[in-house]
């Protein structure tokens, strides 16, 4: 599904990722953990196609294609979804209109028919209910004045609507109460399928209790410095990152 080889990325001449390698197979869920500032969001942004990053070396292949050659929107059409660490507010852009435009853009690009208004409404209301998102939020401007948890639920709603093949969730669990955490995990688990993969970036082992990842990676200093199974996450919870960084150095 996704194959990252020796990826080096810098921002304004500052190297952030320094030869990162990561393989994710179809149907797998991987957790990426790591200290603040280690480059997790940078990785997520580069995969989703955000401007401002310079890829100086390496390669990313997604379903056999050169991912980095694709425009941002084309990546979304190809099934990539990034749930953002800090979802941005879009004043004056109606949440419902936005989601419909988004879904139909993706459907058009895939040669599927657009959903008409009633069909879309049915679907978005249904999903919002599953996710426990207050339907009133659908009528407001995207993320504007949403609480932290509401923003994250709104991200999960979009993921559920778009049914991506590769979902990257960047700290979607941060700042959530325990109920919201279950909802997020439920959203992720509902998406799990043999032809879908998920990258969960998180600082907390407790999310992994609900999600049960296939692999856990530690990103430090711009590289994956350790990979393992769920046990690794538990170990990190107890011991922190110091020992791994020392090992890596």
């Amino acid at each position: 599904m996704l194959s990252i080889t020796n990826l080096k990325v810098s921002i304004d001449e500052k190297a952030i990722l320094n030869g990162l390698n990561l393989e994710i197979g179809a149907g797998e869920v991987h957790a990426v953990m790591g200290p603040n500032g280690s480059g997790k969001s940078t990785l997520a942004h580069v995969l989703a196609g955000r401007d401002g990053y310079r890829v100086t070396d390496g390669e990313v292949r997604y379903e056999g294609r050169d991912l980095l050659a694709l425009e941002t929107e084309a990546r979304a059409h190809a099934g990539i979804f990034l749930g953002m660490q800090y979802p941005v507010e879009l004043p004056g852009v109606n949440n419902m209109t936005f989601m419909r435009e988004s879904l139909n853009s993706v459907r058009r690009a895939r040669g599927e028919p657009e959903l008409d208004a009633p069909a879309f409404l049915r679907r978005v209301r249904e999903q919002a209910q599953l996710i426990g998102l207050d339907p009133a939020l659908l009528k407001r401007s995207v993320n504007e004045g949403f609480s932290g948890g509401e923003k994250k639920r709104n991200e999960i709603l979009q993921m559920a609507m778009l049914e991506p093949k590769l979902a990257i969730l960047d700290e979607t669990d941060s700042g959530l109460d325990i109920d919201a955490l279950r909802v997020i995990a439920g959203g992720v688990n509902a998406l799990r399928a043999a032809d879908r993969s998920i990258i969960v970036i998180t600082h907390y082992q407790r999310l992994l209790d609900y999600i049960a990842p296939d692999r856990v990676h530690v990103l430090a200093g711009g590289k994956i410095v350790r990979s393992g199974d769920r046990q690794l996450a538990l170990e990190l919870e107890q011991r922190g990152y110091g020992w791994i960084e020392e090992d890596a150095a």
Binding site: F81, S102, S105, L162
Partner: peptide, 9 residues
């Protein structure tokens, strides 16, 4: 970026 990452040109 937010909109484009959701497939909107």
């Amino acid at each position: 970026f937010y909109l484009r990452s959701r497939g909107i040109a």
